[in-house]
Nucleic acid binder design. Structure first.
Length: 479
RNA sequence: CGGGGUGUGGCACAGUUUGGUAGUGCGCUUGGUUCGGGACCAAGAGGCCGCUGGUUCAAGUCCAGUCACUCCGACCA
């Protein structure tokens, strides 16, 4: 049976204070620890294991699609950063600078990469000469530094882990296709691995990446009704190629410019998972990325045969799943609460009574439902229950998003809905003018998140100026 | 960057108003009893009171500065 009772007393309930709830989870589930440098956190083993699972799944997918991993340096000379005007304007305000080597001032200061377009461009200029050299489909898993003013664990830190894909193609068509493909890879990953529904769309001109021709993003809605950008994919055209002097000789023996893309996801995804699935008992992790998918809790483990049986279950399940057996001398109740806090998708309880009956008790984290499982069908049942957890998490997240998606025709309506039903996604029409985009934000508080690929006709006119509408736009308050 | 809050054993906090022997709970260690939703008893260990300077016979407490964390805004993955 599902229960609403809260077993963990030291997590601030979400409804009381969502921000505090988030901070509590992040600390109590042992995901991060602060250090003496603002915005630079220790990603603890449990959180890093989540990141490793994210990496494993995505890295495999990237490689299936022909990408290769590389590793660029972490320093960018100022002159290199300055080569593309829009790009440097976008990033200069938040880069960290290295000015000394040992005690000697450097002749040219170096920035710690906030992103690596410039490094990839410098490299591509060196290695791309002929159409035969194209495409190059590169990716790197590294950390980057952006000197943010306010920081929050996973959501905004000064150093963060990510992957950045950088590709270079002979034609615009091919590069655009790559941009779209990778956005789809991210969206599929969010839905299939993170059990998190996302809206795919295009960023408005004012919101696109510094130096890009167009930026695409996936947007997810967190439990508090705020939007979180979960991944981006950019099409650069030949702007960077021109700025960095990358060109090649095509089949007709003409010098031409190639077309580029970049795309990335970050450890912010961990924050997204927390805020999408977590509840007042703690984290709830989707099985695909959970470091521990199944925890086995022996009950009355001092009694004869209990630990032996628990070990037997462990051995059987370890062949198929990531399993942990907790035979510490903490009480069972303590263990139940502990692994719920850590978001372990499935708990198996095994005690003397169960052993007598040839069964064990399985409890799914997201709804605390108990299932009696016959030991001779343990492996298959566990598989089914893990699938059920994934589906349950997804359904819950989707239902929350639907509940907090408001289709509005006027700005007054937007304000009313937000006031009445809380923050959420607002779907409303837009004429395409930046002036209206700004005004909607000013008046209603929600900014443009993206222009969804799946367009819907809410009305014929712009929600702001009343002129003919060009797109439906997804608006929201963002993290 | 603007506005608030907080820094005291590993964690959560009290003590600061009114200066005078550094406390409580949890956790930790050891031993024992427990064990189907955060068990209990007993005995222990553990603190440059964020940092720097000042006032004072005396500073966790008063003053100045500084750093960090955190929350709410603006900006950003």
């Amino acid at each position: 049976m599902a229960q609403d009772k809260k077993f963990v007393e030291d997590i601030t309930p979400m409804d009381v204070d969502f921000a505090q709830w988030y901070t509590d989870i992040v600390k109590k589930a042992e995901l991060v620890e602060y250090t003496s440098v603002k915005g630079c956190l220790v990603i603890r083993p449990y959180a890093y294991a989540i990141w490793e699972n994210i990496q494993k799944i995505l890295d495999k997918r990237f490689k299936e699609l022909g990408h290769e991993n590389v590793c660029m340096p972490m320093f960018i000379p100022e002159s290199l950063l300055n080569k593309e005007k829009d790009h440097v304007e976008g990033f200069a305000p938040e880069v960290a600078w290295v000015t000394h080597g040992g005690n000697e001032p450097l002749e040219e200061r170096l920035c710690v990469r906030p992103t690596s377009e410039t490094l990839f461009c410098e490299h591509y200029a060196n290695i791309v000469h002929s159409y035969r050299d194209l495409p190059k489909l590169y990716n790197q898993w590294v950390s980057v530094v952006r000197w943010e003013k306010t920081t929050r664990p996973f959501l905004r830190t000064r150093e963060f882990l990510w992957q950045e894909g950088h590709t270079i193609h002979a034609t615009a068509e091919e590069a655009i296709k790559e941009t779209e493909q990778m956005l789809n890879v991210y969206a599929d990953f969010c839905e299939q691995a993170l059990a998190m529904p996302v809206i795919k769309g295009k960023k408005t001109e004012s919101d696109k990446f510094a130096g890009a021709v167009s930026t695409y993003a996936i947007e997810a809605l967190m439990h508090d009704g705020k939007a979180l950008q979960a991944g981006t994919s950019h099409y650069f055209g030949d702007g960077f190629a021109k700025a960095f002097g990358i060109n090649y000789t095509d089949k007709e023996n003409k010098r031409v410019f190639p077309h580029q893309t970049s795309w990335g996801v970050t450890t912010r995804l961990i924050g997204a998972v927390i805020m999408t699935h977590g509840d007042d008992s703690g984290l709830a992790l989707p099985p695909a990325i959970a470091p521990v998918q199944v925890v086995i809790v022996p009950v009355a483990q001092h009694k004869e045969g209990v630990l032996e049986k628990a070990n037997e279950l462990y051995t059987r399940l370890s062949k198929l799943y990531r399993v942990k057996l907790d035979s510490s001398d903490n009480s069972p109740g303590w263990k139940f609460a502990e692994y719920e806090m850590k978001g372990v998708p499935l708990r198996i309880e095994i005690g003397p009574r169960d052993i007598e009956n040839g069964v064990c008790v399985a409890v799914t984290r997201h709804n605390r439902e108990k299932t009696i499982v016959a030991l001779d069908e343990l492996e298959s049942k566990v598989g089914e229950l893990l699938t059920a957890v994934h589906d349950g998490l997804y359904a819950k997240a989707l239902a929350n998003r639907e509940k907090h998606t408001y289709r509005c025709k006027t700005m007054d309506e937007i304000k009313e809905r937000l006031e009445k039903d809380g923050d959420g996604f607002v779907m409303a029409m837009w004429c395409g003018e930046e002036e209206c985009e700004d005004k909607v934000k000013e008046v209603t508080g929600v900014g443009s998140r993206c222009i969804p690929f799946e367009q819907e006709n809410i009305s014929d006119v712009c929600v702001c100026c009343g002129k003919k509408a060009k797109h439906s736009v997804c608006w929201g308050k963002a993290y």
